[in-house]
């Protein structure tokens, strides 16, 4: 067992445990904090696989930006989840079905791939090479995604504008 595999298993345990904690906590802020740790663990996993660029992006975008927005909303809520059951019984069945399906598919993919026993070589992906690859081979997908994001931004703007209009008469000038 090399030092890399030891780190890999430690990280895997960290990610699994924190994710499990994140979905079972009743205190939502705690759940968000555990999820941040989980993302951070995934970032370190990327780093271990020789993709520091991806690792840093994972921290900036997921751990740094998206979770801050989650926290932002959750912090202001005061939800009392005292006595109720963590998951309502009606949600157990679909959750279990999805989980089993995912497990079967995952094992199926690993078993059916003849190369799954070979360890990947550690390589280093330079940001420049990464960008060149993305924009040479997948430029259309990138453009579609950016268009989608633009539509989302315009949509959010429209929603915010529309809900503002009725109260505009009460406050004639400034805010």
């Amino acid at each position: 067992m090399t030092i890399y595999s030891i780190i890999f298993y430690l990280l895997s345990v960290l990610i699994l445990v924190t994710t499990a904690l994140a979905i079972t906590r009743r205190n939502m802020v705690h759940a968000v904090v555990y999820l941040i740790f989980s993302f951070f663990g995934s970032a370190m996993l990327f780093y271990l696989f020789g993709a520091p660029f991806l690792a840093v992006l994972e921290v900036i975008i997921y751990a740094g930006a998206i979770m801050v927005l989650f926290l932002f909303i959750v912090m202001m809520l005061k939800v009392d989840t005292g006595g109720e059951r963590l998951f309502p019984l009606s949600q157990w069945l679909p959750a279990a079905v999805c989980g089993v399906l995912y497990l079967v598919l995952g094992i199926g993919i690993v078993v059916s791939d003849p190369n799954s026993h070979d360890a990947l070589k550690t390589a280093r992906a330079e940001p420049g090479a990464f960008g060149q690859y993305i924009f040479q081979n997948h430029w259309l997908s990138i453009e579609i995604i950016s268009l989608l994001l633009l539509v989302a931004v315009i949509g959010a703007l429209l929603l915010a504008r529309r809900s503002k209009r009725p109260s505009a008469q009460e406050i004639p000038e400034g805010e």
């Binding site: 802020v29 904090v33 941040i36 520091p52 660029f53 840093v56 992006l57 921290v59 900036i60 751990a63 740094g64 930006a65 801050v68 926290l71 932002f72 912090m75 330079e126 940001p127």
Partner: peptide
């Protein structure tokens, strides 16, 4: 000398937000 050094700084500065937000909460 990380070759993603500048992004590393941004990653840390985006994590620093949690100290402020969670400390306040």
């Amino acid at each position: 000398d990380l070759f993603v050094g500048l992004l590393f700084v941004f990653a840390l500065s985006s994590l620093g937000v949690y100290g402020v937000a969670l400390g306040g909460w």
